Simulated scan of single mutants.
Amino acid sequence: MLWSGRIMSGLFAAFLLIASAAPKLVNARVATEPLAALGWPPAYAPMIGMVELACVILYLIPRTSIFGATLTMGLLGGAMATQIRVGNPLFSHILFSIYLGLFMWGGLWLRDPQVRAIFPWRRSMPEAA
């Protein structure tokens, strides 16, 4: 479970860094044009990229991983709200943040026993007393 969680967390972090944060940090057109289409000023790209980078770093450090995951969910929630506001398709755009969040939390759940204690996996419902 530990290695599966590390691999999932690493894939999530690599995706967020390579596909999202890095293009924003260098103010690449691949990042600024979609932001403009969503109604965000392209000048915000580096700042959003720095926030994404900070969230990923906090998520990857074991002592701050839950805090990083919580901050990342806030970031993903803002992205989802933007997609809703512009009326993009549900399953491909609006829910993409949920898909990423589930993958992120799944990796953390697999690698952190404290998270598993908070969110236990139950095979069946316990019988009523």
Rank of each mutant, 00 (worst) to 15 (best):
I84G: 01
V30H: 12
R85A: 14
P89I: 03
I98M: 06
F12D: 02
P113K: 00
W40I: 10
E52V: 01
G68E: 01
V51P: 10
A28D: 00
E127A: 11
F15Q: 01
A31L: 04
L2Q: 09
A19C: 13
F103T: 11
Y59R: 02
I18E: 15
K24V: 12
L76A: 00
Y59K: 03
P42E: 08
L100T: 08
P113A: 07
R63C: 09
G106R: 03
P89C: 07
M8T: 15
A22L: 03
T64Y: 15
A19M: 12
F91N: 14
W40G: 05
I57N: 09
P46S: 02
I61K: 07
V30T: 14
A117Y: 02
D112Y: 07
E33A: 12
M50G: 09
A19Q: 00
M104L: 02
G49Y: 07
Q114N: 14
G5I: 04
R85M: 12
M125V: 15
S20N: 07
Y59T: 07
L75W: 15
F103S: 07
L35R: 08
S4D: 12
M50F: 03
A37F: 06
L95T: 08
R6M: 14
I61A: 03
L25P: 02
K24H: 14
P34R: 09
L38N: 00
V51N: 13
L16F: 14
D112R: 00
G107P: 07
L53N: 05
F67Q: 11
G68K: 03
E127P: 03
Y59I: 06
A22M: 01
L25A: 02
T32A: 01
F103L: 04
T72F: 14
G39P: 13
A37D: 15
A31K: 08
S124P: 15
W40V: 12
E127D: 04
A43L: 08
R123H: 02
F12R: 02
I98V: 10
P23R: 01
P41M: 11
T32M: 04
V26Y: 13
M47N: 05
F67H: 09
T72C: 07
F15M: 13
Q114R: 15
R85K: 14
S20Y: 04
G5M: 05
G107V: 06
V86W: 02
F12L: 10
G68V: 02
P46H: 03
R122A: 08
L38I: 01
A69R: 01
S124K: 15
H93N: 14
G49M: 00
L16R: 11
L35Y: 10
P120M: 12
A37L: 11
P23W: 01
L110Q: 03
P120G: 05
T82Y: 11
I66N: 05
R122P: 15
A19G: 04
H93W: 10
T32H: 00
L11P: 00
Y59H: 05
L95W: 08
L108A: 02
L60D: 04
S92C: 00
A81H: 05
R6C: 14
F15D: 11
M47P: 06
G10W: 03
F67E: 12
L11S: 02
A79C: 02
S20K: 01
V26H: 12
A37I: 10
Y59L: 04
L95P: 07
A79D: 11
P42H: 06
N88P: 13
W121N: 14
G49F: 09
A13M: 12
A81M: 00
A117S: 09
L58Q: 08
R116H: 05
L16M: 14
